[in-house]
């Protein structure tokens, strides 16, 4: 073959295209088979001990921290999307631990990591205890970071329903330099009437206003909408009760309530999805972003 041989050039071009196609399809198959291979922990983690990892990372610890952070997010997101009923987030904490050991000031990893860990199944592993361990680790490196202390209080409040602990951590956060004034107020409210919607609303309003980034602020807005939905559901439940008292039977649909003059339109939640009415109880509609609604301790107590 010479440079001036057009037939040779065409054949080489065709060969290159064919080989590229083969590579892409084989890579596709390979990826599928790899996903089917059971052992991923070893590959994903390489090393489980954060101390050993820091030593081996030489001067690349920040880069490795980024890498493990991406893996943590992928592990969380991938498991969350998985339809496997027995899914487990068992690598989440080791990955976050490695990330924050390699780069102890990786603040996003503390914020999001603790949120991921605390989230209840099936959307998360439901490990608020580990979320607190992670945040306390961050607080050891940066003791003045009031946001971490606030976040610990938050985990106690929202996921563990331990209002005494929550109030204590909100207070501690409020005492740190640079902390906003409302933390002290929040601590007081939490201690006095922990767990009611009003104090929850106060908590989330502050997050929506001051959250570290947009994802957090969006999440806070969603939580506020949940609180609104819970108020609305209570109201609808009362209407259903009134209907039942008057007609002696539960309404079978919202139309029944409409015809009876109790409702002027189809009731929808704050995201626009209609509520569901089933055997006299009111629930969020199918596919609402707000479900599941948080557990309400007061209901259980009352």
């Amino acid at each position: 073959m010479t440079r001036s041989d057009p037939r040779g050039a065409w054949m080489s071009g065709a060969l290159v295209v064919a080989l590229m196609a083969a590579i892409v399809s084989l890579q596709h198959t390979q990826g599928r088979l790899e996903a089917a291979t059971p052992d991923t922990a070893e590959n994903l983690l390489y090393v489980r001990s954060p101390a050993a990892m820091s030593r081996m990372a030489l001067s690349y610890d920040a880069v490795l921290a980024d890498l493990y952070w991406i893996r943590a997010v992928q592990h969380y997101g991938g498991t969350r999307l998985s339809t496997d009923p027995n899914k487990q987030y068992d690598l989440l904490y080791p990955l976050l631990d490695l990330t924050t050991s390699l780069d102890p000031r990786f603040n996003v990893a503390y914020y999001f990591g603790s949120t991921f860990l605390a989230e209840a199944p099936p959307d998360g592993p439901g490990r608020p205890d580990l979320a607190i361990v992670l945040l306390e680790k961050g607080l050891r490196v940066q003791p003045d970071k009031w946001e971490f202390a606030q976040w610990i209080g938050f985990v106690h409040y929202w996921w563990r329903h331990d209002y005494a602990q929550a109030a204590e951590w909100f207070q501690r956060a409020g005492d740190l330099p640079g902390a906003p004034f409302w933390l002290a107020q929040l601590a007081a409210t939490t201690l006095a009437e922990g767990g009611n919607r009003q104090s929850s609303r106060l908590l989330w309003q502050e997050v929506a206003r001051t959250g570290v980034n947009e994802a957090f602020r969006n999440e806070a807005v969603r939580r506020l909408q949940q609180l609104d939905a819970m108020d609305q559901i209570d109201q609808l439940f009362q209407i259903v009760g009134a209907f039942q008292q008057r007609y002696g039977a539960v309404p079978r649909s919202w139309d029944d309530l409409g015809r009876a003059g109790y409702l002027r339109s189809l009731p929808v939640d704050p995201t626009g999805v209609p509520y569901r009415l089933e055997a006299g109880s009111v629930a969020l509609g199918e596919g609402s972003r707000l479900s599941p609604l948080p557990r309400e301790p007061q209901r259980l107590i009352q």
Partner: peptide, 12 residues
């Protein structure tokens, strides 16, 4: 060696 990390990138 980090190629596999690109595979699920679109999830995040």
């Amino acid at each position: 060696h980090f190629n596999a990390d690109l595979r699920n990138f679109e999830n995040i």
